[in-house]
């Protein structure tokens, strides 16, 4: 029991010097899944259906998403609690995105060479769904892990401070 307690304390103490790589790696994975998502959409060959303002907005958002997530990945690496909030928001937005471009494309039908074609067919829709949902899951998990670790580290630092103060006095 004492050994387990000691191991737990060492694990906590390690956080003072070891970066929060689990959260930051989840952020990188979220970026990767998002890249797969937009590559999958932009390579679609369905006439001029995608040439609209919504896709323009999507491109701008993708750039912003990658920038924010990368910055957050650096923030969570050094246990900064506020970056969890950013990741949480971005994660929720990733889920919301499923209902904008992918769903609209899945329901839309266009004429390509005189043949009526569904813009986003089922296999592509499922793939896109997985990418976005996966990306969102990674971001939410990264946010939660970072939040929890930050809390633990704060508590541990306070314990250390109290212990040091007691030893000093």
């Amino acid at each position: 029991m004492t050994q387990i307690m000691e191991d737990r304390e060492i694990k906590l103490d390690r956080m003072r010097f070891v970066k929060n790589t689990s959260s930051s790696r989840l952020c990188y994975l979220a970026i990767l899944l998002n890249v797969l998502y937009f590559v999958s959409i932009y390579k679609s060959d369905v006439g001029s259906w995608y040439y609209q303002i919504l896709v323009g907005g999507s491109i701008v958002y993708n750039l912003l998403f990658m920038l924010m997530t990368f910055l957050a990945s650096e923030g969570v690496k050094s246990y900064q609690k506020n970056y969890s909030k950013i990741l949480l928001v971005v994660g929720v937005l990733q889920i919301a995105r499923i209902f904008i471009l992918p769903l609209k494309s899945h329901q839309a039908v266009v004429k390509v060479s005189g043949v009526e074609t569904v813009v986003m067919q089922n296999p592509q829709f499922i793939r896109v769904l997985i990418y976005l949902a996966g990306s969102a899951a990674c971001l939410l998990a990264a946010a939660m892990i970072n939040w929890r670790k930050c809390g633990m580290l704060e508590k541990h630092m306070k314990t250390l401070e109290t212990r040091n103060a007691r030893e000093a006095s």
Partner: peptide, 10 residues
């Protein structure tokens, strides 16, 4: 083991 490493480094 990371915990052993931690002890040694400290």
């Amino acid at each position: 083991d990371p915990n052993v490493i931690h002890k040694k480094v400290l």
